[in-house]
Design a protein around this nucleic acid. Structure first.
Lengths: 248, 248
DNA sequence: CGAATACTTGATGAGACTCAAGCGCCGTGG
DNA sequence: CCACGGCGCTTGAGTCTCATCAAGTATTCG
């Protein structure tokens, strides 16, 4: 790959999706209940009444594209297990990852007719697809759904602004520190983190290069703030120091 | 100011607002009709039925705070004339400007009980304040309002993501080029731009320093891509070059 | 075991930040 | 009318962080 590994998501371009399809019977999957406050999608509290009905379960292998930027937005999705990334490709070849979506979270929800971003499987993962019914149906109708969608979008907005803040934050160390805490919160606030994504993914999420991500993690390790038992495992030894670094 | 000019927004901290208040009679102000596509807040098309009724007109002098981060979100606002910025202050003293709001645009709309950001007058400006009626009233009720609010929030989300992209974009020149085009679009797509905001504002919006903003503008001037008849006026001589720079 | 892939580490350079000084505009006051 | 000071903006010199280029190591999978 001569483009610096940025297009890892574009695997098997001409190939049909490798995914199995089955009708969902609204399995109230334990994974759908986010363990902590950070997984603050209001989904969990309304799962029984929400769009768990009539969904289609899909499986994706790592790096598999779920939909592309510009695709017709026929569905939105809920993550059952695994991790999904939503991202855009800039015309200079860079990739910008907008968000990582973990179990229980919803992505791919659009106001317009097409998806503004691409969605790709980060790890082996299972999602449920729901038919988009358009803005009309969202807002009017029951009112319950309307409230949920509205709340969902407002949460997305808050998260997007949080991400902006992260991107504008000065140093690589600050970004990495903030990122680690974000992941820790979303994984249940344990000090022992499993990173589901590659260094490249982290880099594209934080607006850094893969080398800087690696170096910064190594430095935090040397400083004793974190430990790296393996590449994809991180132990947060000194969360106070991390908080200070990231600017609380 | 020993904090590098970052807290310019916090003027007259202990002082009462210098603003005149009067009841709005839903003046269908010509300024409220955004001239181009970029001013894409769906307000304009529904102004007559939207919250122009029952608003309170407020005037603010430049740098005057309209509300602070964490203030109770009793109202949201529509800009009648002038420019407003919404921003956050980081605990390291930096300021992050989330957005500039021009005539006809709405800001300060929150799902929660408090404002997530502060709002400040960039220039002399007039806004109309509307009582927040809570999520319930937004969504249910007429349905017309619901659609509007929903659409509004989705637009905000798209803009926030666009801003993320801008922040993650590599070079200062790219950021400045993109910024100039954004302003041009919102001011009516003329090649002659009036910048309502200071260099510091631009810097805090783009995640740069005031010196880099100034230097980059000077460089674009020297390259003949823009002209700077005065500090707050910019002429876009070569919009094709600008587009190329910013990455289309 | 070998090859591919992911990650780490090193050396170097470009670009942005920092500190510092100078310029230009504008309002104030003599 | 001009002198002065304040403020916003510009410009310069030096430093430092991060991107780039280039190996080298570890891990996984056939």
């Amino acid at each position: 790959m001569d483009c610096g590994g940025y297009n890892k998501g574009k695997v098997n371009p001409g190939q049909e999706p490798k995914m199995s399809v089955s009708l969902a019977v609204a399995a109230n999957n334990p994974h759908s209940a986010p363990p902590t406050a950070m997984a603050s999608m209001p989904w969990s509290s309304e799962t029984r009444d929400g769009p768990d009905r009539n969904g289609v379960v899909l499986h994706f292998v790592p790096e598999r594209q779920i939909y592309a930027e510009g695709d017709e937005a026929r569905s939105f999705y809920k993550v059952v297990s695994g991790v999904v990334r939503t991202c855009r490709f800039l015309n200079d070849g860079r990739r910008q990852i907008d968000a990582f979506h973990m179990a229980g979270e919803v992505f791919g929800f659009e106001a317009g007719a097409t998806h503004e971003m691409a969605a790709e499987a980060v790890s082996e993962c299972t999602v449920i697809a729901y038919r988009q019914r358009g803005l009309e149906a969202m807002v009017s109708g029951d009112g319950r759904m309307g409230r949920w969608f509205f709340s969902h979008v407002m949460t997305c907005l808050t998260l997007a602004r949080e991400h902006s803040l992260l991107l504008s934050r000065g140093s690589a160390a600050q970004k990495i520190a903030a990122f680690l805490q974000e992941i820790a919160n979303r994984e249940g606030n344990d000090s022992r983190i499993d990173l589901p994504m590659s260094r490249q993914d982290i880099a594209d999420y934080l607006g850094l290069t893969i080398e800087t991500v690696s170096r910064t993690l190594s430095q935090l390790d040397r400083d004793g703030i974190i430990a790296l038992p393996s590449a994809r495992k991180v132990v947060l030894n000194d969360r106070r120091a991390l908080r200070t670094l990231s600017g609380s």
